[in-house]
Amino acid sequence: MGLKGKDLLGLRETSADEIELILKTAEPMKEIIGREIKKVPTLRGRTVINLFYENSTRTRTSFELAGKYMGADTVSLNVATSSVQKGESLRDTGKTIEVMGADVIIIRHSAAGAPHFLAKCVKARVINAGDGFHEHPTQALLDLFTINEKKGRIGGLVVAILGDILHSRVARSNIWGLTKLGAEVRVVGPSTLMAPDIASLGVKVFHRVEDAVAGADVINVLRLQLERQQKGLFPTIREYARLFGLNPARVKLAKPDVLVLHPGPMNRGVEISPEVADSLHSVINEQVTNGVAVRMALLYLLMGGGSGDEVAH
């Protein structure tokens, strides 16, 4: 079996079976990253284009390396200096890239739904690398991979997602993925940063970090966009850090072997204290490695690949 759709736009539309296939396929990919010669010829002759309308270092680099390790040609479009600044529409930009021979277009965009729009405009496969507050499916996949690698399962785990839920595409994709694989999901953050009616997605809503992390197997800390303060959504960084920052005392309320995740880049001392970020609970650096593996798996599967074992051997 493979992936059903042409594109990967979000985990809401991705089945539990497909998610598990991606996670399983990422295992041999991770082995490739550990090699001295980190390159396989599987996607040789394929072209992967990164189309990033928002700044990103880690996701763009991660996709770029994933493509290169798989043998594909990868190009990252620097949107700031391209025709986008001259007012070209997303449709025209997408078509232009496609007729240059792109097989996969990876798009990050500040507008929710932009990847869906692009996917309708082009025949190339489209991967959503984050769209507005909507979804960031590959981040959730790498989070799931990391949790599964450390805990041996997803089902039955208690996962607390902490921070700005309202504006977080990472939270949304994680909620879809985790609930599909049977985890108990808790979300916690200030009431001004809580997404309306989110409990209807089958998650428990908290406003006290202590309550949310009690007995948790995993705490996923979201990055706080500091400019939200200017918009009046919380009073000060100081108060946010005191009420919602993850510190060692709060980690102690969770299970003794709790994992701490963060999608990065971190605001140390704001949403996460340095002690926690650098503690043995933290798997933040491994998340980054796993991100490359998951994206290799995804590129491979979208290009029609099977289980992935034949790539590594």
Partner: peptide
């Protein structure tokens, strides 16, 4: 409209 569907779609309500 602000509600569950704006939350799911990631569009400001």
């Amino acid at each position: 409209h602000e509600g569950l569907h704006s939350t799911i779609l990631g569009l400001k309500g």
